[in-house]
Amino acid sequence: METFDEDPYVLLHKARAGDRHAREEFTRRFTPFVLRVASESVGRYVALGQDDESSIALMAFNEAIDQYDPGQETNFLTFAETVIKRRLIDYLRRETRRRQREFLISPEKTEEGYPDSFPVSLQERQAVEIFNRQQEASERKEEIALFKKRLEEFGISLPDLARSSPRHKSARRRAMEAARILAEEDSLRESFLRHKMLPLKELEIRTRFSRKTLERHRRYIIAIALIYVDEFPYLKEYLKETDSTVERG
Rank of each mutant, 00 (worst) to 15 (best):
F103V: 08
G71S: 10
K240A: 05
L151F: 07
L235M: 08
E53I: 06
Y220Q: 10
L58P: 07
Y114W: 13
S55G: 03
I56M: 02
S41Y: 01
L104Y: 05
R206S: 10
T207C: 02
A178H: 01
G49Q: 06
R216E: 14
K14I: 09
N75M: 10
A225E: 05
E136L: 01
L88W: 08
E139M: 09
D243C: 03
R150S: 13
A175W: 00
R174K: 13
Y68V: 01
D19S: 10
L88I: 15
L146Q: 05
R174S: 11
L158W: 03
F209G: 00
R125E: 05
A183G: 01
F154Q: 07
L92C: 10
K169N: 09
I227K: 05
L104R: 03
P115N: 00
L35M: 14
L92M: 12
A60N: 04
L158Y: 02
L161E: 01
Y9A: 06
R99H: 07
K149Q: 13
V120M: 05
Y91M: 08
E112S: 08
L151D: 09
F33A: 11
P119A: 03
S170Y: 07
R23A: 15
I156M: 03
V10I: 15
Q126H: 08
E102T: 11
Y114G: 02
F103Y: 11
I227N: 06
Q123H: 08
K212G: 09
S164L: 09
H168S: 10
R93E: 11
I205N: 11
R16K: 15
I130T: 12
S138H: 05
E124H: 08
S39D: 03
T78F: 06
E124W: 03
K141V: 04
E24L: 14
L200G: 07
N132Q: 05
R94M: 07
F26G: 06
T213L: 04
G49N: 04
F4I: 15
R93F: 12
E202P: 01
R98M: 06
K201S: 14
Q126F: 06
F30D: 09
T31K: 15
M1Y: 14
L92P: 04
R99V: 00
A57R: 02
R28T: 14
E73L: 14
T31E: 13
S121H: 00
A17N: 08
E143Y: 06
V246Y: 07
P199L: 04
D19Y: 09
N62M: 13
R150D: 13
K169R: 08
R174W: 03
L198M: 05
S55T: 06
G249E: 13
T242V: 10
P115W: 01
L11S: 06
A60Q: 04
T74H: 02
Y9W: 13
V46L: 08
E190C: 00
L158H: 01
E129Q: 10
I205P: 02
S55Y: 06
A175P: 01
H13M: 09
D5F: 14
T74E: 15
Q50L: 12
F131Q: 02
L11A: 04
E129S: 05
